[in-house]
Amino acid sequence: MNMDHLFVNEQIDISNLPQADEVTWVPLNKKYLPISLLSTALFGLLLLSIFLVVNFVNTDMIEDNRIVFSVIGGVILLFVFILLISALGFKHKAYALREHDVLYKSGLIFRKTIALPFNRVQHSEINQGPIERKFNLASLEIFTAGGSQSDLTIPGLLNEDAQSMKAFIMEKASKHE
């Protein structure tokens, strides 16, 4: 007989349920912070240089130099802001693997905690950017059928950890097929 059927008519005491709030959160790898800041900064520089090159080649695109400077200033400010937010938000990002689900929390202003049961996992992916590869980091992306908002991405994992987490999750998920 399937164990699960025992639950059906049982009186359930909510306070005895597994508490998702009392797990031990695992922080992201420390290397991830400088790397993510670096890649954001590089992306900002890339945008700026494209703008400057286009502006240099096509001199009559924007005639007023003040506009050029304010665009540059604006982009720099925006990226400084993004960098600041991700630096401050880093310590709020953490994950937890439990027996039946995976949890991930993030957010500086909007604190989010998403919980994803293994028996709803469709598939998962490991992503590595060029810079991440250099530092042996990876991010694990877990997909459900609930649309892109309900998918879960855990960045800043050591590549080995990401691989073994993926294997663990997929093994759990396949049991429910």
Partner: peptide
């Protein structure tokens, strides 16, 4: 929180 915990419990214990 208890709604979340209950949902997780129900989803995970249901086949």
């Amino acid at each position: 929180q208890s709604l979340r915990n209950y949902i997780l419990f129900t989803v995970e214990s249901s086949d």
